[in-house]
Design a protein around this nucleic acid. Structure first.
Lengths: 335, 335
DNA sequence: GTGAAAGCGCTAACAT
DNA sequence: ATGTTAGCGCTTTCAC
């Protein structure tokens, strides 16, 4: 293993000069800096993060906690985080809580202890998690929690886009197939739906749920959605939409002819399935990147939990229209 | 931050006793051990991995490199690795190379340097990567490379299962829609296909590709597959199958009526799409778990690259029959 | 601008 | 069985 001593010897300087040349370039003469850099590169020197972290009090690493890596939503966010971390030269510990609050708390504790800060990505209420993390900076994805920096999708705008689209297509009775009660996004969307309904007296909005955010959640909802007489549905996410579509088709309801469906998230599933799904898109990778940038800013700042005021960043929603939505049957010419 | 000193003081022992009580329980008196454990728990002591790693020469952390986290295949493997790492009490650095060989080499270098070993998950030939890692233990997923420990799916058995299934359904002309030339799995499968064809004189096997392992890879292949007169196709993975199915349907070919399709991997996509896909299943999470166990074993052993002879673990393949396969039309009663 | 030296939190000899 | 001590590789005063 090549250490600072090796580089120092080869460059004919002291180890502190090597350290400075590599971490605080302006505190060393240009010529020295260059020589050290060259020698370091030749020797293939890589600083030992454990050692530098131990001494400097920061590890150059942060943690990312997600509930389920195989969920395309979190996979996309994770990619954004990983990508941006690399650009910042930071390491990332990725942990998967398997949607289990206990595991989540345990992992989070460990994560907070070994890293400089944490990006906390959880659909659940993470208020309790906050104190597990202690004084380390946290950025929360997909929640708005008092006293934390958060990043998320603009669910309100998303709902408005979905409703607007369906309303314009002539739908007047829209079902919302909601997610888990613990989901903050779901809460937001329900509130936004109520608001959207208030603005459109001719519109009737029916809400169903809670449903698990899996295929079975969608299949479970199919019966009541069909029975409700709704001509369009908005689902909690793509996967629920897939379940819903499949089951209503089994019941003889055609999508989009008899039922239009708009999903949330627009993960790659949305354009993979048949019919492809009209979906409320958010740049999830961007969410991850943004969360990372916010964390890095806090890391660079006071470093503590109170380094910066709580902020709430919303990434814009965009509606991607595909095959699962069509004009309400009543608008079609008869026959 | 609570350190060994705090625990030592509170428990009335020396710091080395604390360290021993926590890491080598059989080297201290039971009563002492218990007292230390209690005090440590009360104080919320968590050992600092950076410090212990620095001193002990192992970090308690290993790296996992995957080409694309949002690929369901790698997501599943990653989950297995993460899960097992947690059970072993090890941290895991997950990095995403974005399918870029240069990024991969850079990340791998960093990874090898900060960790005790690496699980290398790459569809490409990783021979060059081996030396980047240096002396650290490596477990390779999805390859068989001289001198390394590897874990993978049993592609040969998988092909045999797929061919057997289709042959039994009466298919006599089968197309293989292959993956990238750089894919080792693809190579294996092509070899297995040739073998399967040799055993069945009445069977004709056509191979196509290379194709990118994405939806577009499948759509690109649709034309030639249909033109080839094959009544069944085996695809490199689920995503390619999705593309293939979609496009052949556009061409007026019904699946499975006119064309049966068997995919590889059986990720969650396979039962999500319509028609759901008959797919060669491997326990991918198990692959991840197995890779982790092998790495842990090497970590516990000599620790170096030569600690144990190279081994090649194959996880069994299983065929999951779903809607995308049916008897060859020629076997159906006319009309 | 550069070097000498202290020490981050921990573990592993070496003592006792 | 337990305490004392010397570092792991690095950053950061403090001198010069």
């Amino acid at each position: 293993m090549v250490t600072v001593r090796d580089v120092a010897r080869a460059a004919g300087v002291s180890i502190s000069t090597v350290s400075r040349a590599l971490t605080a370039p302006d505190k060393v003469a240009a010529s020295t800096r260059e020589r050290v850099a060259t020698v370091a590169a030749e020797l293939g020197y890589l600083p030992n993060r454990a050692a530098s972290g131990l001494r400097a009090g920061r590890t150059g690493t942060f943690g990312l906690l997600v509930p389920d890596l195989s969920n395309p939503y979190f996979a996309a966010v994770t990619k954004g985080v990983a990508e941006r971390a690399r650009e910042h030269g930071l390491g990332v510990f990725v942990v998967d809580s398997e949607e289990d609050p206990e595991i989540e708390a345990e992992l989070l504790r460990g994560l907070a202890h070994q890293t400089d800060g944490v990006v906390l990505c959880s659909p659940r209420d993470v208020t309790g998690d906050r104190e597990v993390v202690g004084a380390k900076p946290v950025v929360v994805v997909n929640h708005r929690i008092d006293g934390t920096v958060s990043v998320g999708s603009d669910n309100t705008a998303g709902i408005e886009l979905a409703v607007e689209h369906l309303h314009a297509l002539g739908h007047r009775r829209i079902a919302y197939v909601g997610g888990p009660t613990t989901s903050w996004s779901d809460e937001q969307r329900r509130a936004a739906l109520a608001e959207a309904g208030r603005h459109r007296p001719d519109l009737e909005i029916l809400t169903f749920g809670p449903h698990r955010p899996v295929v079975e959640g969608g299949t479970a909802a199919a019966g009541v959605v069909v029975a409700s007489g709704a001509t369009a549905a908005i689902t909690f996410n793509d996967v629920v939409a897939v379940g819903l579509v499949r089951r209503v088709q089994d019941l003889g309801v055609r999508v989009p002819h008899d039922l239009s469906v708009v999903s949330f998230d627009d993960t790659f599933l949305a354009h993979l399935v048949t019919p492809s799904l009209t979906s409320v898109h958010t740049d999830l990778r961007g969410v991850g990147r943004q969360a990372t940038d916010l964390l890095v800013r806090r890391l660079a700042g006071a470093g503590g939990a109170d380094g910066e005021p709580a902020t709430d960043t919303l990434l814009p929603a965009r509606l991607v229209v595909r095959e699962s939505t069509a004009p309400a049957a009543s608008l079609l010419p008869p026959g």
